[in-house]
């Protein structure tokens, strides 16, 4: 039996997102919200593991009331308990405040029944920081393995796990003892085609709502905007880099191309 926690985030669907050219900020109006795709991978893995080993899935998210939709989606993957952290005092949190809030909530949730496996997406597609998973693991004082692409084995008796992790030049194969926190890459798990009963159950699911007042006891100063030292100095649209010219040497003689390159370098004062 595995006791799994999955942490998810509702994000604007960035495939549709546009940037206001004057202010440089995201136009959020009318942009549909989705569950962060890497978190869907985490949910998919939880779903698969629950089928294979049995157990329980608890899903948490922090966000506005409409984040309920993502928690309902989690029920489709077999979530047994869904919790929404929703309070104005949580709003405006950076990764530091978010890690704190989630870690305290997880501590509260596992008081009687500790989690074996904590699954996070590798990053959220709106902020791209990839900091919350490791931040939570640190606060829970458990090992973290980021960018996991394959779960090779779980040994429930000896409480060990073997996973593959993506690194810049190759793959690391790591063994860790449970409990462990994994952050999930796309390749880790395919999205299951969930059964009808879960889909029906999901539309009616109502999450438990946790606020800053309880049931978890928080240090107020560490929450939301107050607890967020990150300051956004400037938001800007990166300029599109000019594309280089490409010559096909079967069509253009080499000498001509070299001449052209020399010409450009001279023009830029580099030669």
């Amino acid at each position: 039996m595995l006791n799994i926690l999955v942490s998810i985030k509702q994000v604007p669907d960035t495939t549709n997102i546009r940037i206001n050219p004057e202010t440089g900020t995201l136009i959020r109006e009318g942009i549909p919200s989705i569950t962060n795709p890497y978190d869907v991978v985490a949910l998919s893995l939880a779903c698969e593991l629950k089928q294979r080993y049995g157990g329980k899935i608890t899903v948490i998210t922090m966000g506005p009331p409409q984040a309920k939709a993502s928690l309902r989606e989690a029920v489709e993957f077999g979530a047994d308990r869904i919790i929404l952290l929703c309070d104005k005092k949580f709003a405006g949190a950076d990764t530091l405040a978010t890690s704190y809030t989630l870690a305290e909530t997880i501590k509260f949730l596992q008081k009687d029944d500790p989690f074996d496996l904590l699954l996070f997406g590798k990053q959220a597609i709106d902020g791209d920081t990839a900091q919350v998973g490791p931040g939570v693991a640190n606060r829970l004082n458990i090992p973290v393995i980021t960018y996991v692409i394959k779960l090779q084995d779980i040994d429930l008796i000896n409480k060990k796990i073997i996973v593959h992790r993506k690194i810049e030049r190759g793959v690391e194969v790591l063994e860790a003892s449970l409990p462990v926190l994994l952050t999930c890459e796309k390749e880790l798990c395919a999205t299951p085609f969930v059964p009808l009963e879960q889909v029906i159950k999901a539309t009616k699911a109502e999450p438990e709502v946790f606020t800053a007042e309880g049931p978890v006891i928080f240090t107020r100063e560490k929450l939301g905007l107050k607890g967020s030292p990150t300051q956004v100095k400037k938001v800007f649209t990166p300029e599109l880099k000019k594309q280089g010219k490409i010559y096909n040497l079967e069509e253009v003689p080499l000498e001509k191309v070299i001449e052209e390159i020399i010409g450009v370098l001279k023009e830029k004062g580099l030669l």
Binding site: G78, F193, V194, P195, L196, E197, Q198, V199
Partner: peptide, 16 residues
């Protein structure tokens, strides 16, 4: 009969 499986245990298309 729908395209989704009956349950996690039973992968055959659900009949209602």
């Amino acid at each position: 009969i729908v395209d989704r499986p009956t349950s996690f245990e039973d992968p055959s298309p659900a009949t209602i």
